[in-house]
C-alpha cells in the first residue's frame, strides 16, 4: 500500500463530504499551510486525537564533515518535533504488522 498523500486526502473530502475537487484540494493545502504558518511564527500546534507539533531551539554545537573529518560547527537552529498524542500512540502500538 502506498503512502497517504495530499491527493488522497482531497479525494476523501470529495467523496465523503461532497466538496468539489477544487475546494477539496484547497482545503488540504490550507490545513497544512496554517500549521506551517503557526510553527514558523514560533507557536506550537496541538491537534487532539493526533498529536502536538512543538518547537525547539538548539544552540550551536561542534560537528564534523563525515567525509573529510573536518570540524565544522553546526549552527544554532530551530526545529519542529512531533509528539504523538496518547490516543494515537495506543492505536499505533496495537498495530501488529510485521516489522521491517
Amino acid at each position: 500500500m502506498g503512502a497517504l498523500t495530499k491527493a488522497d486526502m482531497a479525494e476523501r473530502l470529495f467523496e465523503e463530504l461532497g466538496l468539489n475537487k477544487r475546494e477539496a484540494k484547497e482545503m488540504v493545502e490550507m490545513f497544512f499551510e496554517e500549521i506551517r504558518h503557526s510553527l514558523e511564527s514560533n507557536v506550537p500546534v496541538k491537534l487532539s486525537g493526533f498529536g502536538n507539533f512543538d518547537l525547539r531551539d538548539k544552540s550551536e554545537r561542534p560537528g564534523r564533515n563525515p567525509k573529510t573529518g573536518e570540524e565544522i560547527p553546526i549552527t544554532a537552529r530551530r526545529v519542529v518535533t512531533f509528539r504523538p498524542g496518547q490516543k494515537l500512540k495506543q492505536r499505533v502500538e496495537a498495530y501488529a504488522g510485521t516489522k521491517s
Partner: peptide, 11 residues
Amino acid sequence: TLIEEMADSLA
C-alpha cells in the same frame, strides 16, 4: 476528517 484519516493511516 483529515486528522482522522491521518490517524487511521498510521494506526
